[in-house]
Design a protein around this nucleic acid. Sequence first.
DNA 1: GGGTGGCATCTTTTT
DNA 2: GATGCCACCC
Length: 774
Amino acid sequence: MRQFVLSADDEHELERESAVLDGLNESQRVAAETIHGPVMIVAGAGSGKTRTLTYRIAHLLATGSARPYEILALTFTNKAAKEMAGRIIDLVGDEAARGLWMGTFHSVFGRILRIEGHHLGYTSDYTIYDTDDTERVIKQLIKRYNIDDRQFTPRAVRSTISRAKNKLIDPSAFAQQTSSFLDEKVALVYGPYEMELRQSNAMDFDDLLLNPIRLFEQHPDVLSKYQNRWKFIHIDEYQDTNRAQYVVTRLLSRVHGNICVVGDDAQSIYAFRGADITNILNFESDHENAKLIRLEQNYRSTKKILQLADSVIKHNKNQLEKTLWTDNPDGDDIVVIEALSEKDEAQKLERTIRDLHLRKGYSYGDFAILYRTNAQSRSLEDALRRANIPYEIIGGTNFYQRKEIKDAVAYLRLVVNPRDNESIRRVINYPTRGIGDKTVARLMDIARSGDGSLWTAIKQIEQMGMTARATKAVAGFRDLIQRYGSMREEAPADELARALIKETGILTNLRDENTIESLARWENVQELISAIAEFTEEATSNTAAIAATGTTPGTLGAFLQEVSLVATIDMADDSDRLVKLMTLHSSKGLEFQVVCIAGLEEGLFPLQGATADPADLEEERRLLYVGITRGRKHLFLSSARSRFRYGQVHPAVPSRFLEEMDASVMQTETGRRFGARTAYQDYARPRYGSTTIARSVDDRIAGGEFEDQVYTLERVASDPRDIVNGSRVEHQLFGSGKVIAIEGSADQRRATVFFKRVGQKKLVLKFAKLNLIE
DNA sequence: GGGTGGCATCTTTTT
DNA sequence: GATGCCACCC
C-alpha cells in the first residue's frame, strides 16, 4: 500500500517482520517448548508474549503432546482470543485445532455455567447483569433499606461489593470486617443484593468467576471432569488476574500442574477492578518447580521510546527485576506538544497525524491517540472530523449499553428468563402501558413477601387484589411475555426477536418521536435485530474450529449471554484506514506505528485522587508505561494549559510524569531540547508564531508540496472507503445528512443516508460522490 | 398515570 | 455538556 520509497526505517521494519516470521528467539523457544509443569513467562512490553503463548499451543498440537480439547487458553479480551485462534489455525490447520477452548475468563466460565449451573440452582438461560443492571439493582436496594447518603452512590457500593466478591468475601464475612462508614452501609445491601440476583436467575460479572469456584468446591466430580479434560492451561496477561481467577485456575491445574502464564508486572493496570498483582509476584513460591522465563528483548519500539518507558517505570518501587533492550534503531526523539486548551491540543495532534501521513506515508490506521478518560475523546473527535481524517473510537459507550438497545434486550431477556426482576422493572411500563410507579411498588411489595420474584406476582395478577385497571394492564404485559416465551422453542431466534420488538411498540414509539436522535435509535434497534439474525445464521452454519468466544448454538439465550460479554474493542475490525482513539486501558496488548498520548496534566493523568496513595500513583505510572510502549516508531506526548471539564474551563499544569522522563530523548515541538524548565518557559510564553512542523502542513499543502503524491485533500468527493456508519456527509443535491447504515463492499458498497432535507436515501458510494463533512 | 421543565451532579479506568 | 432526578402540572 505504501507509495513511497523505502526509507531506512522501512528497511528495518522488513527485517523485524522477517525475524518474527522466522520463528522465536532462544528464550521464547524454551518457553514454548517447556510443556510440563508450571511455567511463568515474565516479559517486557513488545517482547512477543502472546506470540510465544500462541507458538506453545501450536507446538503442543503439532507434536501430538496434547489433543485440542485438552487445551484451555484464557485471554483478556475476545479480540485477543480470536487473533490467537487465527494464528494457531494458520500454524497447524483447521482440523488439528478443532475443539480447543480459547476465550476470556468470563466467556469460558460463563459457558461452563450454562452446562453445569443447574448444580447451583441456575437454569442454563441465566441472565448476565452488566455494570449498569447491577447499579440499578443496588439503587433499588439503597432506596428500600433507606440508607440514602451523599457519598453512598450506587457506583461506590457496586465497586465495593465487586471488590469483596473478587476477594471471595461473602456477605456474612464482609459484615464482620467492616472498617469504614461506607463498608457498614455496604454490608447492609450486599446480602440482599446477592439474594436479588439469585431470585432473578441472574449473575453479575463477578459471579461468572465465583460460581465456578463454588461449583468445583461443592461438586468434586464436576471439578475432576474438567481437571481431566484440560491438561494444559494457559493464561495471558496474568498480571491482571484477580483472586477468583487465581483460585479457579489453581483448582483446574492442581492435578497435572501444567499451567503456563504470561505477564508483565509493569503493565498491571487493573487493580481498581480487583486485579491482584501478588498473583504474578508469587507465582514461583506458589507453584513448586515453577520455571521462570524472562523475555527481555523488545521487538516493537525504537531505542528512544524504550528508554523513555524505562525512565518512567523506574520511579516505581514495586516491580520484578528485568531490563528491556532492543536491537531496533534509535528512532526519533519523543515530541512533547504543549497546547493552550484541549481544542488546541486536538488540533495540534490532528496536524501531527496529517503531517506524518503525508510525509512518511503512514496509513491512518497506523495512528492511535490514547487518553486517560473517555470524556477526552470529544475534542479529539471534533478536530479529526473537521480535518476529514477518518477515525474510530474504541470503547466508550458500547452499542449494547445504549438505552434503546437495553430496552429491547430487556424484553428478549424476559422471554428467555422471566424471573429477571431488573428487566421487568426496566420495561414493565416502557413503552407506557398504564403501569405506574404505584402499581410497580405494590408488585415489589407482593414479591418481597413471597418468593422475591416479580414474575410470580405478575403471573397471578388477577389474585393480587389490585384495581381493575392496573390488573388489566399488568395482565397485558404478562401475556405478551408468556406468549413469546412459549414460542421460543419453535421459532428461530431472529424472527422471534423481530416480532416481539415490533409488538412491544418500541419501534413505533421511536419513529413517532421523529427527531434525528430518535430515528438513529430506531436504526440501532433494527441493527440489533440484524445482529441476532447474523448470530443465528452463524451458529447454524458454524464450522469454526475453535470456540474462541465459547460460542453456543444460536439460541436467543446464547446470544444474550454473549453480547453481555463483548467489549467494543472486540468488535473493532482491523480497519487499517482509521485513526484509533481509545483509553490507555483499552490500548493494552495493541501496537501502533505512531502513538499520541493526550492530556498529560496534573489531575487528569495522574488523575485527581490517584496521587495521594503511592500505590494508586504507581498504577497511573504503569498505565503511562503501557501507553508509551504501544508505540513502535513515533511517540507524541501532549498537554494543555487549560481544559474544559464539568462545563467549565479549568487551568491545568503539566503532569509530574513529564518531569520524571528522560529528557535526553525528548524535544519540544519546536525542536528544542525538552526539560522541566524549558517546558515551563514554553508555557509562560507560548511560541505559536514560530515555525513548527505540525503547524506548517496546511501552508505546505497550499504551496503544492504534496501534489505529486497520491494523497490529496481536495474537497470534491471523499474517498468512499472513508465513509463509515455515522459519518456526516454532503451530497450535491440532497444536502447534508448522516450515514445510518452501510452494506456491501467494494464497488457495491451502499450507504443509507438520512438527509436533513429529503429524508432517507440509499446510495451506491462509488457513484454518489459523497463528501465527508465535520 | 403521564409528561415536562428546571436543577444538581458529574468523569476514572472495564470483563 | 449531558444526563438523571424531582417537582409540578395536566
